[in-house]
Design a protein around this nucleic acid. Structure first.
Lengths: 225, 225, 225, 225
DNA sequence: CATGAATGAGGTTTCATTCAT
DNA sequence: GATGAATGAAACCTCATTCAT
């Protein structure tokens, strides 16, 4: 049995910690495999990626993949899970115990998301989920429940903080959340899809404009700032 | 030509309406096939879609596909092109000769895009291009040059109109364009990808919020409105 | 590199003889496959031969063919090339350093061709080339340039040797070459095509008659033998 | 039922003669079809030839072929039969009632074969039979029995005529027949197979050399000519 | 642990054959 | 008679999966 044979058993290995010598190598190897797999899945899609290519990019033989993953699907699942776990932790910690104006918090959240998620390997997971949602409904559901819901919940708390403090004017919070997130997700999609057309976006300037427009749109102009 | 050959020509071709039934079918076939193909490509991706399924959904046999398209790839290309041509026309005509405030124009453009493109079959093309960009670089380039560039150009003219009239405050126009477009594209992606999670978006409310935030963010507050 | 990684390298690669069984199989496979393919191509023609049949005759699965040959066409090419290379060597060596009467040399060449080429697996290549010449013009050209031209050149030297020594009477050498070769090629064709009709030829008697008629036809009767 | 649905019913239509008006067109058409089919079968082989191509070359639609032939195989059979019938008649009549030296008769037969069979459309049939013999054993058998056997019988009578008159020396008649025929058959094969290599043969010179060598080889030198 | 040769189910593609017009 | 759109069986080819080494 490979360590990634099931979708459910996340967070289990991080606790074990012992069985160092023998186990370390076995644990270390899969991340090289999932890393190679992620790149290719993002590039060519799940069905369009051959295990030969993944093995080649990871520098192992095709058979080796089956030492760690029961099937191509299990590898896909592992790729997503590996990209989700740190994303969860990273996103949550930025909000906790923030002091200062909500507009600044929003800025921290947006820019932080880019630096810690969007621009990293995990950005590819976003595109992957979008592309393969219908082929892997459980995985999509999992991603939705554990990443999207929690991310939206985080943003909702931020917006409500601004509303309660009187910084922000009234709005439809649920819609606003999606509208605020959209440019973030599109940024990674943009970079993974249209990069080949020569039309590339400068993330910092793009995010700054997004933030600027957003804050001006959210602020309650009737108040004295 | 034999002078007696006339008998052969009488009742075979002259009655033009005769083969109309068949003809109508043959003319309609390609778009029936691309329609079925688009749905499945969007749902399962290019590599994940079987020609059997496309044929079955279109109600024809597998071999019939090859009467109209040389290969699966040619079918893909046709699907995209068929979705692009009307998109081009639709996008351009909304801007021409608009009178009134630029903020209203912007609203017309955003909502109009949804009604005429995003919510229609062509919305699927957006997701398809995003998913398959690396597998079909030429198609992606084509889409970029003919749809994205022209759509951005349209939006640029709108923003500059607002800047010149003094309605809008200063901004980085290029970034703003992408930021404005992002929620539109994400709306279709959202509907094609996460609809299966029970989390669906109400397009009108979403777009209204987008527009509202955007206008507040763009307006020059220093001016008397 | 970890200083403890040495254990991993001990008993995996160093014992060179270990994978000999497998290796021997892999090395032998291509010629096993081409041998099976040749038989069937000769029998049924290129288009009429199914890869399943070739695989079955070679005792492997269909997929295995593609481990060694990129396509059916590549397999065909390999079949021909494999039959040509030894033919080249065999043909050339029969002439080199022959002492004695030219008529005897001619006899050696004709009978030798049959024993070393015509009656062997390479005889099938002749029929194959003839049948598929228009479908594989490059292969045909290759065969022409490397086998036919050299074979004719060999025969030309033999005839000229006879002319110079005064053994043979005057003739149109170029035509004579083709006339001499024809019964050889027809012999293999005969055996591959009309063997099924019950009408089979005895090669030795046939060749002896060919040689006999030929020598009598070539000799200069005016001379004292 | 098409007139060519069975292999056995040859020579039946030539006797009918009536039913002129209606029937004439129906009878005339197939020869255009078989002519087109012969060319392509010779060029690409039976399995390698598509009915579309035959129809296109004959200038009719694909469905029309099925008005005259039950299947692709029936068309193949008809092609051969059409090429055989006149070949039989032509070959036989050259021998009947010939006066003069047997060597001259032989020359007439060889050159006549080329002019009336080898160089005509029927030459292609030879190559076709050779290529497809295993795929169509009955057709091959038919060709063997009706053409080869009769042709060999003709040649046998010629050789025996020469032996009885004392013109020719002793030989193994059966082998000689095949050796004499071989250059003829190879001539057509040569022209159908290696014509694409730029190496073409001049039939007249080739046949002249064949005849010359042959006669010298056959003649009884001990006799006074 | 790791390999990579071998497999065979399943995909794309072709094409002989049919049949409504 | 003639057509050519439609079919589906069967071909070529791919690739996830297995297993002897």
């Amino acid at each position: 049995m490979s360590p990634h044979s099931s979708t459910a058993d996340i967070d289990t290995e991080s606790v074990t910690g012992e069985r160092s010598q023998r186990r370390r190598r076995k644990d270390a190897r899969p991340s090289e495999l999932t890393a190679a797999a992620l790149e290719l899945f993002v590039e060519k899609g799940f069905a369009g990626t051959r295990l030969d290519d993944i093995a080649a990019r990871a520098g192992v033989s095709k058979g080796t993949l089956y030492l760690y993953f029961d099937s191509k699907e299990a590898l896909f699942t592992a790729v997503i899970e590996e990209g989700i776990v740190p994303a969860l932790a990273a996103a949550e910690q930025q909000f906790a115990g923030y002091q200062g104006r909500t507009s600044d918090l929003l800025r921290v959240l947006l820019l932080g998301w880019w630096q810690q998620i969007g621009s990293t390997r995990m950005g590819g997971v976003v595109k992957l989920i979008i592309s393969e949602s219908h082929n892997f409904p459980e995985v999509t559901q999992y991603y939705h429940d554990h990443v999207i819901v929690r991310g939206r919940s985080l943003l909702r708390r931020a917006l409500q903080r601004g509303l309660e403090s009187g910084e922000f004017r009234q709005m439809d919070v649920d819609s606003a959340i999606d509208v605020i997130i959209a440019p973030l997700l599109m940024l990674v999609i943009w970079r993974y899809s249209f990069c080949i057309c020569g039309h590339d976006i400068e993330p910092e300037k793009y995010l700054e404009t997004h933030f600027d427009l957003l804050i001006q749109g959210l602020l309650d102009k009737g108040r004295v700032q």
